[in-house]
Amino acid sequence: MNVSYDSRLLFRHEGPLDMEVLPLLVHNLEGILQREGARPPLRRKVVTCLIELAQNIIHYAVHKENYPPLLMVSRRNDKGFILLTRNLVHYSQELFLQNYLHNLTQMPRAELENLHYSTLTEGSYSDSGGAGLGLIQVLFKADQFEYEFVPADGEYSWFSVKATFLS
């Protein structure tokens, strides 16, 4: 998955990702978006979606040497920002995510909104304390959402998410 040539790279982290690193990335990205003149609602969308995707990577991604996760934010002309993440997943996770994201991306906005609200108010927590809302939130907040799986090594694939947020 590529970010087109008419966009400008603002932020890139490719390497180990944990809860020690994440606050530094959030702080850096917040500063960059402020300097880019992004207003608070847009900044909040980009940063909170980065937090959700990064915490998904921390909790669920396969961590293998030479296959580090990637987080990137680019400026999309003057019309917004593109957040791209990439991480390694096992084949079994790919099957789950393919099905889950296929269903989510087919939902009309109103249905997605209902799912977001019902998961918030009635859903349960995962073992890692997650609310099952992360990807729903990213889909809900982003103006465009794409994802793909690319074979990486044997039973593993790269899972990429590209979320575009318009000004």
């Binding site: 959030v26 909040r44 940063v47 909170t48 937090i51 959700e52 915490q55 918030l120 108010t121 859903g123 927590y125 304390g129 997650g130 609310a131 809302l133 992360g134 729903i136 939130q137």
Partner: peptide, 12 residues
């Protein structure tokens, strides 16, 4: 300021 979705649920 910034809060994640699991915080959103705990707040409720």
């Amino acid at each position: 300021e910034y809060f994640n979705t699991s915080t959103a649920k705990v707040l409720l």
